[in-house]
Nucleic acid binder design. Structure first.
Length: 244
DNA sequence: TGCCATGTTAAACT
DNA sequence: GAGTTTAACATGGC
């Protein structure tokens, strides 16, 4: 569930609830759900891995972390994992094992919408500026930085670096300009490939490095190491990914 | 069956 | 107080 493209799928999936009135709200999320009753859904938004439900009076922020999930109309998980259930005349939305809270009304203005790789507002030049400001940063950390690449997660990180043949331990400052541009471009492009494949249930089939044993390009072993400040699982080909 | 992972935050440290 | 490391959270797939 967690990476940006999956949230875009969610936003599409609940689109028909836009304008609908919440008839009841329940679940074990630790806030007062009664204030949502009889409120209309104004909009659903995503920023990277965060999902927002807007009513006239409130903004609910949902983060799925590692294990979060949702379902529409059917309650498919145990009650204990049900964080929020929104009931409408036309159906139901269920959110499970995620972090949910209200955020301040004007908080949405605080988000850097140009950082969201899935957004129409995505700004590659702004991303480059932020990257060049931290030349010592490792590329494997840079890709997971939500201020720069909001929505990019560990799978996208591994796949993009393999696709552009850049070693995860390269630093931003050492990357040739063409490679840096390519990294920024593919962070978005791969995310849209991810979206397309996920919709078709073909995502895993298309992984070239993530969880793979053999490099699809050179047939040499893919290495698995925990790298960077983020210390996340990193799959890479030591042969065809160049360290800069 | 046990391990561990598409992630983040807050507490506990130095 | 700052910067950092660690623990906590919690489910499902392999």
């Amino acid at each position: 569930m967690p990476e940006g493209p999956s949230l875009v799928i969610l936003k599409e999936a609940v689109y028909s609830f836009k304008g609908a009135k919440i008839l009841s709200a329940s679940g074990n999320a630790k806030f007062d759900k009664s204030v949502l009753i009889n409120k209309k859904i104004i909009d659903f938004k995503t920023w990277g891995k965060q999902f927002f439900i807007q009513t006239n009076n409130h903004i609910i922020r949902i983060h799925f972390l590692l294990f979060g999930s949702y379902s529409i109309d059917e309650h498919i998980k145990p009650d204990r994992s049900l964080r929020l259930h929104l009931h409408f005349a036309k159906g139901d939305i269920y959110f499970y094992t995620c972090a949910i809270r209200f955020i301040d009304k004007n908080m949405l203005d605080e988000y850097d919408w140009e950082a969201d790789v899935m957004s129409d507002k995505w700004n590659a030049k702004a991303a480059k500026k932020k990257l060049l400001f931290q030349p010592e940063m490792l590329v494997c950390d840079a890709m997971l930085n939500q201020e720069i690449f909001s929505g990019v997660g560990n799978i996208i990180k591994n796949e993009v670096l393999h696709r552009i043949k850049v070693h995860p331990l390269s630093t931003i400052g050492n990357l040739p300009s063409t490679k840096l541009n390519r990294l920024i471009k593919e962070a978005r492009a791969y995310s849209f490939d991810f979206l397309e494949w996920k919709i078709k249930f073909e995502l895993k089939n298309n992984w070239r490095a993530h969880t793979r044993k053999i490099c699809s390009r050179c047939n040499l072993p893919i290495l698995k190491e925990y790298l960077g400040k983020t210390n996340r699982r990193t799959f890479f080909c030591d042969n065809c990914q160049v360290k800069y």
